[in-house]
């Protein structure tokens, strides 16, 4: 789910915003639409889908250094097409924006870079998987994206992380067809929630070894939001014991929020959660970058007997890029403990 909004950031200075959040509710002129029952094929579907309007590859990592200090790291590549085709040279209608960030309990550093498709400055290939823009890259050797390496360089930080996972990919919704509204908006959406991370992270030239867990998302669509949907809250959680949980709610100014989620057991089996099974409840608002955001949450999933509270590592994990959004590491406690990432947009 995450990143929907981000597509707009690519487009913050670039592309048109009309209805819904950042134009994501726009009419998709000539672009393909996700269809239920469509089967995703890997590694082919790791690559770009130029016939869809927007797409993103998204990695968030919860890390610790040798002294036990916590970090968050983010790496995102967005693709945005002006027309449903690929192309060589400057005529290509594809454009890319990438965001990278590093978070500690006191610091949140982020960077942005942009590129046109077709000339070699940025691109995504399926097999072997490789996504790159400038000197930022994300590549993997295996079909479940194991054997991956991800790197980003920014003026005040840089990281290189090795990622490995034994578990299969987790397909959300109906075998990867993820609904976003009552009126039929949807995307293709899958994750690799089980990455083990080993790498190096430098802030202001001070480098440290880090280890931890990471979550990767790949999602594409052409019109994933209904016109009245203004933003969302999205959670990805690594629960102690090895299971993983993904939850989101899309806020509408007309109807009740559209809630959805997946539970992925420690062996990698994914199960979509029923809408009336999920309860997301803001507990505390906080002023972040000039806007009020729900910074502490109560999260309940009845069927899992899960009742936890989520708290950010750094309440100021705000991406001040174009249209700003919150993207930061969280810790959860209560009936279950764990860690993960929280994304909030449209506030």
């Amino acid at each position: 789910m995450r990143g929907l909004f981000l597509s707009l950031a690519l487009c913050a200075a670039s592309f048109a915003h009309a209805e819904g959040f950042a134009g994501l509710g726009d009419e998709a002129r000539g672009f393909a639409e996700p269809q239920p029952g469509h089967r995703l094929v890997f590694p082919r579907d790791h690559g770009a889908h130029p016939q869809f309007r927007i797409e993103w590859w998204y990695l968030t990592a919860n890390l610790k250094d040798e002294s036990g200090k916590s970090y968050g790291a983010q790496w995102t590549l967005f693709r945005h097409a002006r027309a449903p085709q690929d192309g060589e040279g400057w005529d290509s209608p594809q454009a890319f924006v990438a965001h990278a960030a590093v978070t500690t309990d006191t610091l949140h550093l982020f960077a942005e870079t942009r590129a046109r498709g077709g000339v070699g400055q940025a691109g995504v290939e399926a097999a072997p998987f490789r996504a790159f823009i400038d000197n930022w890259s994300f590549s993997a050797t295996e079909s479940n994206l194991s054997g991956a390496s991800i790197a980003a360089v920014a003026p005040r930080f840089r990281y290189t992380l090795a990622l490995a996972a034994d578990e299969p990919l987790a397909l959300h919704g109906e075998a990867g067809f993820s609904r976003k509204s009552e009126s039929g908006q949807a995307s293709y959406y899958y994750s690799q929630p089980f990455f083990r991370v080993d790498g190096a992270l430098a802030i202001d030239a001070a480098e440290r070894k880090v280890t931890g867990r990471a979550w990767m998302d790949h999602e594409w669509s052409s019109r994933p939001l209904a016109a009245d949907q203004k933003g969302w809250d999205w959670f990805s959680l690594h629960l102690d014991g090895g299971a993983a949980l993904m939850l989101f709610r899309l806020r509408s100014d007309k109807t009740l929020p559209f809630v959805s989620g997946s539970f992925i057991s420690a062996d990698g089996a994914a199960r979509a959660l029923a809408r009336d099974d999920i309860f997301l409840e803001p507990l505390e608002q906080s002023l972040v970058s000039g806007r009020l955001l729900p910074i502490r949450w109560r999260v309940r999933v009845a069927s899992l007997r899960l009742d936890i509270e989520a708290k950010p590592l750094n309440s100021q994990s705000f991406m001040g890029t174009g249209l700003g959004y919150f993207e930061g590491p969280i810790a959860v406690f209560g009936s279950h403990r764990g860690e993960g990432y929280l994304e909030m947009t449209g506030y």
């Binding site: 870079t113 590129a115 000339v119 070699g120 400055q121 790159f132 400038d134 000197n135 360089v153």
Partner: peptide
Amino acid sequence: FIALRRAGWK
């Protein structure tokens, strides 16, 4: 241009 961008030159 591509070579420089890919080497981190903005």
